[in-house]
Design a protein around this nucleic acid. Structure first.
Lengths: 170, 170
DNA sequence: TTATCATGGATAAATTATATCCACAATCAG
DNA sequence: CTGATTGTGGATATAATTTATCCATGATAA
């Protein structure tokens, strides 16, 4: 069982976008280049994040992606669910019913205890993921990471950001 | 992201084997039939469980599988790790290093904060899985499940168990 | 008008999960 | 010993999923 590599990419991109000032954007192609990822494929994930309301997209020559809400209100669970889908990792196939001896459906109204136990454990995972906020990850990075790495990240943002376009009237 | 179906099968088989008296076994082919699973493929998972020390196998016409230790000391984490492998679900590809600006390795001695956060959340999942004991699942099943279902499970064990062979001296 | 960028669909390649088969070793019954 | 039953392990085929690419389209700023 493993998470898709898209999750790692999505989190890194979201963390990068958290460094933007209000309204500014970074194009998807720049994000792909920053992590040496396939642009076409990364866009798929960025679109998933946008569809989930985590990112906003701005079309046009000055467009790109930005966070749709404050980093304090974006958790790793939000990102994982946007990329991987909402389904739980454990999916009960109800194989308890597959034996040669067939019982009526009424014998299976209570949920399978194995499913209950597995989902209970998975709930703990989701709770922990929901507690990991994007804002905390960015703050820890700026505080603890190597200064050269922090400087490089800031330089990337400064180089590729597109400032907020003025609100164009009619 | 999803767990393989083998996990569900492995847990059901282990729970079934927990109903055996000391030393008795059930052949893998009977377990496969009980859950309408591919015998050849289920055996792969049973072998993985045996290799991990969760099950014991007994060859020969009176052979089969049984728990290698008490159900109280078998957790869902043990089974999941035996079937899925020990690797974490989140695997850090160190894509933080992949940008066009290359920094020396010394700039990356501190672990990636995203990896740390993801593994911290995953740890909560493993802890919760480790707390789910096979003995509790079996006890809950006998106490709460539909009596017809419990009776069917007991009948299956009674029909297919192979009693412990007497210790044969030289 | 032109260049840049996001969107969405179609599709191919690579990887992993699922499933099957076969030759072999171990064990027990007769 | 012989034959039947069972687990072991490797090789291999099939299906599903993930990863990656491409192209046509619409939106927007210069």
């Amino acid at each position: 069982m493993k998470l898709s590599e898209g999750v790692e990419a999505a989190i890194h991109c979201a963390a990068t976008l958290a460094g933007l000032e209000d309204g500014a954007t970074i194009p998807g192609s720049a994000l792909a280049a920053q992590f040496s990822l396939s642009p076409s494929y990364l866009l798929k994930h960025l679109q998933a994040l946008a569809g989930a309301g985590i990112l906003e997209s701005v079309p046009g020559p000055a467009g790109g992606y930005r966070l749709a809400r404050a980093a304090e209100r974006i958790s790793l669970l939000d990102i994982v669910m946007a990329v991987e889908g909402p389904q739980p990792a454990f999916r009960c196939g109800e194989i308890r019913r597959n034996g040669p001896v067939k019982l009526p459906d009424a014998a299976y109204v209570k949920p399978c205890g194995i499913k209950v136990a597995m989902l209970r454990a998975e709930k703990a995972w989701r709770t922990a993921l929901a507690a990991e906020k994007l804002s905390a990850i960015v703050a820890d990075f700026r505080k603890d990471a190597d200064p050269r790495s922090v400087a490089a990240a800031c330089a990337f943002v400064a180089q590729h950001r597109r400032p907020q376009k003025p609100v164009s009237g009619t």
